[in-house]
């Protein structure tokens, strides 16, 4: 090999090593100027949902670890998360919401469109209108309640009534669509989305609060994702910011919806109750939740 070629190879190696070293040492970008970005007009309501797995592809998965311990994450889970729950059974159900005439259906749970379990209490399934069950606007029904016996879970009727007037109690199912908006908001949005569109997952997920993440995932733009307290009010505080809070005060000032290592959403690491309230003072902005 000629001297020139040897020198060329040595130079290339040196530049490679240098560039790698430089790439890991320097900070890349300034902190996002989200205030300027948020000021830009943007409509991402038609953006695709990408799922929490896509979110944690870039964001730390420790967020998901702590979120999974919060009460938000426990709002709606897959039926498979309940040991001993027997879905290999057929139940004869009646539409409790249909007050004009009894509508009956033999539902094989293994073949049904089971969506999951709300708050460890209600087994939720989707029933098409062709079954005759039409009382729920989203086609979502509380098919059964869950009870824990020992370490195993079992199903019981959501409501028991004598629908067909034959002297015996029947297995009634209740509407879930109205509950879904808050108790499994992803499921409500899923039912409302057009067929074929990307779906928001059943329970609460990143995109439940942050909005559809497609544009943000593709661009990395902070303007393409919701980071504010607006989504809190979809379910909490009666749908609007409590009058007790000043305009400067925000839910997110005291709460981290991602939760901490213990799964608590109150920022206990930096705040205490007395940070905002005098000792013995009431907690007016939580009154709505307590009453509910």
């Amino acid at each position: 090999m000629e001297k020139k070629s040897k020198a060329l190879v040595a130079l290339m190696l040196a530049v490679s090593v240098l560039s790698t070293a430089c790439s890991s040492a320097k900070p890349l970008a300034p902190a996002p100027n989200s205030s300027a970005a948020e000021a830009q007009a943007l409509d991402i309501s038609k953006a695709a949902y990408v799922g929490s797995q896509t979110c944690i592809s870039c964001h730390s998965n420790t967020i998901m670890d702590s979120f999974n311990k919060t009460t938000h994450a426990a709002l709606f889970k897959a039926a498979t998360a309940y040991p001993g729950l027997n879905l290999n059974q057929t139940v004869t159900i009646f539409d409790d919401g249909n007050k004009t005439k009894p509508v009956k259906l033999d539902l094989n749970l293994a073949q049904g469109d089971i969506k999951g379990v709300m708050a460890d209490q209600h087994l939720v399934a989707s029933l098409s209108q062709s079954t005759g069950f039409t009382s729920d606007n989203l086609g979502l029904y509380r098919i059964a309640d869950l009870e824990k016996e020992g370490n195993a879970w079992k199903l019981t009727p959501a409501v028991e009534k004598d629908y067909d007037k034959n002297g015996t109690k029947d297995w009634g199912v209740r509407n879930y669509g109205d509950c879904a908006t808050c108790h499994s908001p992803g499921l409500a949005a899923q039912a409302l989305q057009a067929p074929g569109a990307n779906k928001l997952t059943g329970g609460m997920s990143c995109e439940t609060c942050h909005g559809p993440g497609g544009v943000h995932a593709a661009t990395g733009s902070p303007a393409a994702i919701a980071v504010n307290e607006d989504s809190c009010y979809v379910c909490h505080a009666g749908g609007e910011k409590p009058a007790d809070l000043t305009p400067e005060q925000s839910c997110l000032e005291c709460h981290n919806p991602h939760g901490n290592a213990r799964g608590l959403m109150f920022k206990e690491d930096t705040l205490s109750c007395e940070s905002c309230h005098e000792s013995g003072d009431s907690d007016p902005h939580h009154a709505v939740l307590k009453a509910h």
Binding site: D43, I44, K46, A47, A48, V50, N198, G214, V215, A217, A218, T219
Partner: peptide
């Protein structure tokens, strides 16, 4: 936004 949706898919 529509094109981005297709792009992601």
């Amino acid at each position: 936004v529509t094109l981005i949706n297709y792009y992601i898919d």
